[in-house]
């Protein structure tokens, strides 16, 4: 185990974390502002990736694909909010879970209907496909580095939007007291649509960015959705700051666990194959253990507000 390996894994964990952040930011905003549990958030991730892959293949440009992905995900977000989600705000969480679960099925099979069951091709753009030497120690993928940067830029952008703009004031006010800001003359419908579309676009962006190094296929959003829920529970529901910290915590814990635990078990277990299997089994539980620990000491998550969860 060398220092460079640890450093490289730390970067990998960070990259995984910021992509989770793009996913969980929307989820936590929608829950915080509208009080809605949106299981279909993973579908936006998938829609973003498919839109990007389709346009990138048609035009040959990854960047056009990225634009298309943002536009498509946001548009689908607006449509879904107007047609379905709007009717759910006043219902209890069980109804929301049922309706948004139905949306997952509709989106998944709809996508299969349009694009077929086979994964689509989406490659890293040529300008980012090589590696770059970091600190003269090791070669790191340019694309992963770019993902880290994009993630932090989005985080700063969101922070500024929410803290420094009029829109942000309204979003925060909506979080604090829905009825009151409606009475004060804020068009709450439009605000909700905007927040929902923003969340959808961020999820779509994550899907497209990650899709280029993973596999663009039907159902790709659901595993990420589960992780995003873990993140917002750890970070505190409704808190962007919590989502950022939670994402990075989950990303780094997961990556480091996968590296360190098998070695740890190999150091005292005789059978190497068993040690590898046990270590990796525990590594895949690690983030849930982390979640349990956080909840023991901070039942509302790291930045959660009392009584909000």
């Amino acid at each position: 185990m060398t220092f460079t390996l640890l450093l490289e894994q730390l970067l990998n964990g960070l990259q995984f974390g910021v992509m989770l952040f793009l996913m969980s930011a929307g989820l936590t905003l929608v829950f915080g502002v509208m009080g809605l549990i949106n299981l279909a958030h993973g579908s936006f991730y998938m829609i973003g990736a498919f839109a990007c892959a389709a346009i990138a293949t048609a035009t040959g440009s990854f960047w056009l694909g990225l634009l298309a992905c943002l536009a498509t995900a946001a548009m689908v977000g607006v449509l879904v909010e107007r047609l379905v989600i709007r009717r759910l705000y006043k219902r209890d969480h069980l109804d929301q879970v049922l309706a948004t679960f139905a949306l997952i099925l509709i989106f998944s099979e709809g996508t299969r209907w349009i694009f077929g069951s086979f994964p689509l091709m989406l490659s890293v753009p040529d300008s980012l496909s090589s590696t770059v030497s970091l600190f003269g120690l090791f070669d790191y993928s340019r694309y992963r580095l770019a993902l880290i940067i994009v993630g932090f830029v989005v985080a700063v952008g969101l922070f500024l939007l929410i803290q420094k703009t009029r829109l942000g004031v309204r979003i925060r006010a909506g979080e604090a007291d829905r009825e009151m800001i409606a009475v004060l003359g804020v068009n709450i419908d439009r605000l909700y649509t905007f927040v929902f579309a923003l969340g959808a676009a961020l999820a779509g962006l994550a899907g497209a960015l990650v899709g280029a190094i993973q596999s663009v296929q039907v159902g790709m959003g659901e595993p990420v959705l589960i992780l995003a829920f873990v993140v917002i529970v750890i970070g505190g529901i409704g808190s962007i700051k919590g989502a950022l910290l939670g994402s990075i915590l989950v990303g780094v814990t997961d990556t480091m666990g996968r590296l360190l635990l098998p070695d740890l078990f190999a150091s005292f277990m005789a059978n190497k194959a068993d040690a590898a299997a046990t270590g990796s089994a525990l590594a895949s539980m690690l983030i849930y253990v982390l979640m349990a620990f956080v909840l023991i000491f901070k039942p509302n998550g790291l930045f959660g507000v009392e009584g909000k969860a």
Partner: peptide, 21 residues
């Protein structure tokens, strides 16, 4: 080396770094 990944895992950065090392 011999390693088991999580079923359904889609990010292999950790394994790749291990192989490189």
């Amino acid at each position: 080396g011999e390693s088991y990944t999580k079923l359904g895992q889609t990010d292999y950065a950790a394994e790749l770094a291990q192989i490189r090392a």
